[in-house]
Amino acid sequence: MPAAAAIKVLVVDDQLTMRALIRSALQEIGFKDIADAQDGEEGLKSLLTRPAHLVISDFNMPKLDGLGLLRAVRANESTKKAAFIMLTGRADKDLVQRAMQFGVNNYVTKPFSPAQLRQKIQEVFGPLT
């Protein structure tokens, strides 16, 4: 049973307010080691210098979107094992299909509560302590 506090997380979203909300939800769940990035490009750079066990990424972002980030993460030997959860809008069924083809581990539909986020993370990591 993994401890949330031991899991390194990277949050990638172009909206500062959304990053703050996700960080708050993660802290509520018990995560402590959280970094963030404002687009896929910055997220990838972060992962290469600070490996993470879990990436939670928005889809719509400038420079490199969530799908591009996912593909880059899966293509890189040092990052490919990271769990990847995509944040999606209510009408993004096509996106979910494509993300699954590229190896996404799970997705969360916005808006979501900390309990829903916890559930999605546990579906990937198993029950968290």
Binding site: Q15, L21, N60, G89, P111
Partner: peptide, 22 residues
């Protein structure tokens, strides 16, 4: 400022911003 209402509001704004960017 931290509960459901905040999440709902941020989501409403994000849908608009993302729609514009798209």
């Amino acid at each position: 400022s931290s509960g459901d209402s905040m999440r709902y509001g941020v989501n409403a704004m994000e849908l608009l911003v993302n729609g514009l960017l798209q």
